[in-house]
């Protein structure tokens, strides 16, 4: 059933956010540390676990992929909620600081992406075929 997938997603999110709160508390700060990131890792592991045991039906996977597909529309709605007016009213100091931080961070991306083995063309091709929800169906039917 579709709801099984949605419920699994919901459970993973709640677990992640809860662990993020605990992590924050244990470090003595009032903030959630990486709750959503933890939830994502829990989901990846849970999906892997259930698929290996053939316990994740196609409708349940549809429940997961529906929300994954709703991601872009939700992000567009999010962009319409941003305090753009406030950002521009923030004055030259805020605008200069924001722009400089982003541009310098952009410049560091190639530098920090090094390390480990650089992917060869074959590996990149392989990555492209194993990523994305749709290919998971193919993997599942094996």
């Amino acid at each position: 059933m579709v709801i099984y997938g949605v419920a699994l997603l919901a459970a993973c999110m709640l677990i992640g956010v809860f662990l993020g709160e605990l992590l924050g508390l244990s470090l003595g700060i009032e903030a959630n540390i990486g709750g959503i990131g933890i939830a994502m890792i829990v989901l990846v592991l849970a999906v892997d676990y259930f698929k290996k045991r053939n316990r994740l039906s196609l409708p349940a996977q549809d429940g997961l992929s529906f929300w994954s597909a709703m991601y872009i529309p939700i992000v567009i709605a999010m962009s319409a909620n941003q305090n753009v007016y406030g950002a521009i009213q923030g004055g030259p100091l805020a605008i200069t600081a924001g722009i400089t931080a982003v541009v310098l961070s952009w410049m560091l991306v190639p530098l920090l992406s090094r390390g480990g083995s650089q992917p060869t063309d074959d590996e990149i091709l392989e990555e492209k075929t194993t990523l994305g929800g749709k290919d998971n169906y193919a993997r599942d039917t094996k």
């Binding site: 959503i36 992929s65 929300w67 909620n81």
Partner: peptide, 24 residues
């Protein structure tokens, strides 16, 4: 409603959902 749809709860829910299909 744009605030509901693009608010923190649904945004985070959809972000977690994108992990479906990511490789550990």
């Amino acid at each position: 409603g744009i605030g509901l749809m693009g608010g923190g709860m649904l945004r985070d829910f959809a972000i977690v959902a994108t992990a479906f299909g990511a490789s550990f």
